[in-house]
Amino acid sequence: MPDKLTQYRSKRAPGRTPEPIPDAPSGTPGGNAFVIQEHHARSLHWDLRLERDGVLVSWAVPKGLPADPDTNHLAVHTEDHPMEYLTFHGEIPKGEYGGGSMSVWDTGTYETEKWSDREVKVVLNGERASGRFVLFRTRGKNWMIHRMGSAVRDPFPGLAPMEPTPRSRPPRDVSAYAFEFAWGGRRLLVPIDGGRTEAAGEHPWLRGLAESFGSRTAVLDGELVTLGGAELLVFYDLLYDDGHTLTGEPYTVRRAALEALDLTGAHWQTAPSWPGDLAPVRQAARDQGLPGVVAKRLDSPYEPGPSKHWLFLKS
């Protein structure tokens, strides 16, 4: 019987990688374990591994498992991995095959509905990955993975940005508002899905931000500004988070969710906000030469286009 781990071993050298390199295949008592690993290698992807005949049959899935049955994801068939990979996590040294950090994203058991050379249909029973999936071969090592059944997350909102309404006088009840700087930059909505964002096409440095989200989905609202001669993206709202639309939630809920992301990087940050405190914010905007202040009602939902819930007050 051929050794199913020959290819795996040929790509790895003991002592140069922390990965397990067993002498022979093994198996679990039930023979139906699976693991999904988040792999920050040359490009972010997820590795789906299904136990089969003492090894883990593996696919690299660049965008992760599809959440919507209307969208299939690429799954590249790779070499079989040893069963010890069920719990493997750590840093594969740069320069080695698959170099980068790897963590266990989910693990559990699965049920086989069909298994052939061209089609694998399974039911995953994990904490984060559950439901029926089918992998089908398209060409060579390239397969596709399809979710069967209903979507497991809300669809992305297709919105225009919410815009403030100019106003000469501040609102009477300042305690009902949060006050933020009007930056005078260019508005940018940033959708993030599968560790990637379309916005990176114009701004390649956003790839790092998107990869930091891993499998977490999001739509961020912000503004491109130039501070100290450097381009910076300041975020001040969150429209979608981890599979759930937030546009109907009040500003306070969206703001708390945005701050929980702790978005701080060389090219991006979370914009400051001061509830119920207009005078010092307006003075700071004047001192910094900013156009003004935006007053945002604490109980307001996110509305596309001009809104009376957001007010622009000149410095």
Rank of each mutant, 00 (worst) to 15 (best):
S103I: 04
P204F: 15
P191V: 10
E303V: 13
D70I: 10
T109I: 13
G54F: 07
A13C: 09
G214F: 05
F179P: 00
E84T: 04
P62L: 13
A230Y: 07
E249S: 11
R118D: 14
P82Y: 02
S150A: 14
R167T: 13
P62K: 09
L65Y: 02
L311F: 11
G222Q: 00
F179Y: 09
G265K: 05
H45W: 05
P18T: 12
V55K: 00
A178M: 08
L224T: 03
R153V: 14
W205K: 07
I21L: 15
K11C: 04
Q288A: 15
G229R: 11
L261E: 05
L298G: 06
Y240M: 09
V281E: 01
D277F: 15
R196N: 08
F181L: 15
S315L: 13
G208I: 11
E19C: 05
D47Q: 04
W310A: 03
G90E: 05
K4V: 13
M83C: 10
E84P: 01
F88M: 12
A151P: 09
K11I: 04
A178V: 07
S103Q: 02
L261N: 03
R12S: 04
H77W: 11
I92A: 02
R137H: 15
D80L: 09
W268R: 01
T109W: 09
P161I: 03
K114N: 07
T112Q: 09
P304T: 04
T197C: 11
P204S: 12
Y177G: 01
R216H: 14
V57D: 01
E111N: 02
L44P: 00
K296M: 11
G99V: 07
V174K: 03
W115Q: 10
S300Q: 10
V293S: 01
F133I: 05
S130Q: 07
A178D: 03
G276D: 07
P14M: 09
K11R: 10
L227Y: 02
D299I: 10
W183Q: 03
W274E: 14
D262E: 14
T28E: 05
A67T: 06
P272S: 14
I145E: 00
A260D: 11
P25L: 11
S212H: 05
A200Y: 03
V294M: 06
R207P: 01
T87L: 06
L224D: 02
E127L: 15
G100H: 06
E223H: 06
K63S: 10
G99M: 07
L159I: 14
P93S: 09
T165Y: 08
P157R: 05
L188W: 02
P280R: 11
R167E: 13
D117Q: 10
G30N: 11
A260G: 11
W115F: 13
T109D: 13
R52C: 12
Y302F: 14
T245P: 07
E127Q: 14
G305T: 09
I21N: 02
V281N: 00
P155Q: 12
R169I: 15
L263R: 00
G126F: 02
L124S: 01
W143I: 08
M148K: 14
V123Q: 05
R216N: 08
A151F: 10
P272T: 10
D262V: 14
V293T: 06
T107P: 03
R187S: 03
N125M: 12
Y8D: 00
R137F: 12
E303M: 12
